[in-house]
Design a protein around this nucleic acid. Structure first.
Lengths: 182, 182
DNA sequence: GGCGGCATGTAAAATGTTACATGATTTA
DNA sequence: TAAATCATGTAACATTTTACATGCCGCC
């Protein structure tokens, strides 16, 4: 149940319309909590109904018109409570690991191509994160918010690095297996 | 759409009943593709309907009676195709990273306790994986299936190791922030 | 014959995905 | 004024989660 909190966080950082939120979920926030515009609009409606956010007065309620939202005190309170809540890590669900296990059962031919493709994707993502780190977090930016945002980014960097090194290991292993088979 | 494939993989490794599958999803397979018994029973029904698996003849169709399934050739073909399919990695969705970002907005007090709790959980999980590696994958087990299963396990080990080192970093950062605040 | 554990399921709600629909604004 | 783009939404469906319901079986 984190989508509402992701939206509250984004709005607390900066009041926005649904489309602007969608854009920010395509980068930044979305790097670790993705959402489509349909989810966002639905959730904005619910949050408004619950009194956690409101549309800015300027916004007329017609379709096709931009409608900006801001967080209300109740929303900020909800967010504060959630931050220190007890919530266990979700069990991992990773299709690629599952596919490697399946390959153990039905045979690993041609698995290499897909692994190499993923490797390239993760390298790209890592490069993107590192560019952001260089651009947005120079050493002089030291406010609490900057430090925490950088920490989150370093989570992304660590995850991508993990995948890259695991995929390297996996490809080496596949070569050995194929060697044994030839 | 990997749950059916997770189940096909598990059944291909060993024909099982719904409850046995549930047990195996609580360890082993479930370490990287979790599922509840409700999901498993429903999916078994669908897979049977599609002709990818079948209930073993011995199984009578009454409620409360054990019912074992095995994979049919069509199921094995489906699994083989899926292994080499092109399927992009899913965008990350991690509530803890999101909560740290939210803490940047509403304040990071008391975040430490939750981070320490997660750290302990990840350390436990890592220890469990390492015990399995020692127990199930001694160097002499070298068949293709063993190598691939070990590779998957090493994925789990790498992921847990990443979280542990990120949480260490995060806790150090929090201390510095609190130091600056005091 | 009742109780606890094994085993299979149903129902409802929340969440996420995919495809489509509609109005407003800009610009060629 | 037509096309492109911005912006908000609906509808239908699939998946996941949570809570509950039911039947069988051994054992005391």
């Amino acid at each position: 149940m984190s989508l509402p909190h992701a939206i509250l966080t984004a709005l607390a950082e900066k009041p926005s319309s649904g489309l602007e939120l969608t854009r920010r979920f395509d980068k930044s926030i979305g790097y670790f909590w993705s959402a489509t515009h349909q989810q966002i609009y639905r959730e904005l409606g619910r949050l408004e109904e619950k009194g956690l956010i409101r549309a800015l007065p300027s916004a007329r309620p017609t379709r096709g018109q931009k409608k900006e939202y801001e967080v209300l005190p109740a929303g900020r309170a909800e967010l504060t409570a959630w931050v220190t809540d007890t919530e266990d890590p979700k069990p991992v669900r990773d299709a690629l690991l599952l596919r490697v296990r399946a390959a153990g059962v039905v045979g690993a031919e041609d698995l290499g191509a897909e692994l190499r493709r993923h490797l390239a994707l993760h390298r790209e993502q890592l490069a993107e994160y590192e560019a952001i780190e260089k651009r947005d977090f120079p050493p002089e930016r030291n406010a609490e918010q900057d430090r925490l945002r950088r920490l989150v980014l370093r989570g992304g960097i660590g995850l991508e690095s993990f995948w890259i090194s695991w995929l390297d290991e996996a490809l080496a292993e596949l070569e050995e297996i194929d060697g044994g088979r030839a």
